[in-house]
């Protein structure tokens, strides 16, 4: 059953256009020039209940704007959107109880107080009885490996602990649709892995739908079977991560340990040289020439070890946005 449905979604922002310097300032003072900037154009997709979907795109591509339209924070200027059967922008209480939004760079916990106090406030606002709230807090705290941290003022918590407490606060009302905007921003690798594992676990246990944006491809590869790629406000790709990498990168990475050191020129004709460090060489070889190239490598060089991998996703996506390879 489709739980999120977007059709022809679009959003324009009106922004002031000011030249730098005093002259620009004065001109701007007397005659404000405004520009309409389309942030999102004609985006359509549907997401099934229980899916975990990654939302990819460079900074300013329109990810956050789309997320805000899906949660009802801003009104679309074009198109239609439906989440769990509701029009988000009307922000009916029943809709708001079904969803949650976690933003890595904003926090809802009260800075000066322990998270438990914020949780009490949330329980009251969402109308969760105190006994039930306590039960849910215990359960989520266990999954998140949070203990006495909940009794310490938020300002004394580490970033990772704070993020976990934010997640707890965002999930107290058992939402069935989770919108996560950069939930692992700024966390160290351990904390990132912890948050990832928790989200996967939560999805498995509750069957909640998750839509997440992240700069860390690790989050996406670990959690999402499906990705939406947005580029310059438009939906560029919708499908599995694996297909995306194959489509964008029709080559694989061949990694060899050699018995001797060779100059870079020696690898001409064996695909694209990715890196060469001592005895170790990495080559990017297109898929259709893979078997031929490997057998020639084995014949030409003293190969001690050979591995064939998919190139790292960061590499592919990064390349995509750097080269503007999106038509």
């Amino acid at each position: 059953m489709a739980i999120i449905r977007a059709r022809g979604l679009g959003k324009c922002f009106r922004v002031a256009d000011k030249q730098p310097g005093l002259g620009g300032t004065l001109r701007h003072f007397f005659a404000r020039r405004l520009k309409d900037i389309p942030a999102v154009k004609d985006v359509s997709f549907t997401i099934e209940s229980g899916e975990v979907v990654g939302f990819l795109g460079a900074n300013g591509a329109g990810k956050t704007t789309t997320l805000k339209m899906l949660t009802g924070l801003i009104e679309p200027s074009a198109g239609e959107v439906e989440v769990a059967g509701y029009r988000p922008f009307r922000r009916q209480a029943a809709f708001l109880r079904t969803i949650t939004l976690v933003m890595g760079q904003k926090q809802q916990l009260i800075w000066d107080l322990p998270p438990l106090d914020s949780l009490r406030v949330n329980a009251a606002v969402y109308g969760i009885s105190e006994a039930e709230a306590r039960r849910r807090i215990d359960e989520l705290a266990e999954m998140l490996e949070l203990g006495e941290e909940l009794r310490r003022p938020v300002r004394k918590l580490s970033l990772g602990q704070r993020m976990k407490a934010e997640l707890l606060a965002a999930l107290l009302h058992r939402p069935s649709v989770l919108f996560l905007d950069e939930p692992t921003l700024g966390l160290d690798v351990n904390a990132q892995v912890r948050v990832r594992e928790f989200l996967a676990d939560y999805n498995r246990r509750t069957g909640a739908t998750v839509l997440l944006t992240s700069h860390y491809m690790g989050d996406i590869t670990a959690l999402c079977q499906r990705v939406l790629l947005i580029h310059q406000g438009q939906l560029f790709y919708d499908g599995s991560l694996q297909e995306l990498t194959q489509q964008l990168a029709p080559y694989r990475e061949v990694c060899c340990d050699l018995g001797a050191v060779y100059p870079p020129e020696a690898f001409r004709g064996f695909g694209e040289l990715e890196s060469l460090a001592g005895h170790r060489v990495r080559l990017l070889v297109s898929r259709d020439q893979l078997t031929g190239t490997i057998s020639r490598l084995l014949l030409t060089f003293p190969v001690l070890d050979l591995e064939v991998n998919d190139p790292p996703v960061e590499e592919i996506i990064g390349r995509l946005f750097r080269e503007g390879a999106v038509a």
Partner: peptide, 11 residues
């Protein structure tokens, strides 16, 4: 002049 430009934004 920079502060003035900044303040004009707050006019």
């Amino acid at each position: 002049s920079v502060q003035y430009a900044y303040m004009l934004e707050y006019r």
